[in-house]
Amino acid sequence: MKIHLNLKEKAVSISVIVSLLVVFYSCSNSSSTENTSTSGTTESSASSTSASNTEAAPADPMTDKGIGPITSSIEIAALDNALADKGKGIFEAKCSACHKIEKRVVGPALGGVTKRRTPEWVMNMILNPNEMTANDPIAKDLLANYAAQMANQNLTQDEARAVLEFFRSNDK
């Protein structure tokens, strides 16, 4: 009789588990959260860093266009000095607290950046740093090396393009 009783209990327990599993399954298929994670916390840095360690194939920096609003190719023509000047002003106001051209400070030195990265990657890194450091293999490695989340300074695409031109003027 004791055995019967236990079996009954088990049957009930299994029904509980099954019903939970069904619900969990349906939940896991629901949409992922829309809330973007805030940047720069230890938690997000830590998780990104550990994820980057498990990354397999290294990306080619001269083909990787990064992740973000710049999806089509950026036309690179002769250097536009006026645009580069505008970019210099933006760089000094919004970027220079962490980046110098010749020297690593908080972030990498940016001399030669246009020789190391695609124009699209540079602009996506400026415009979308949180997603880049979370999902782009090169940006993930940078975060692991520098331990500082690149700040999103909310530049417009035009402003990011101007900053790119400023980098080109340094690298010519």
């Binding site: 805030t38 940047s39 106001a93 919004k94 700040a151 999103n152 300074q153 909310n154 530049l155």
Partner: peptide, 8 residues
């Protein structure tokens, strides 16, 4: 504060 992002 030179940051230009939310919640910093």
């Amino acid at each position: 504060n030179l940051e230009q992002d939310w919640d910093v």
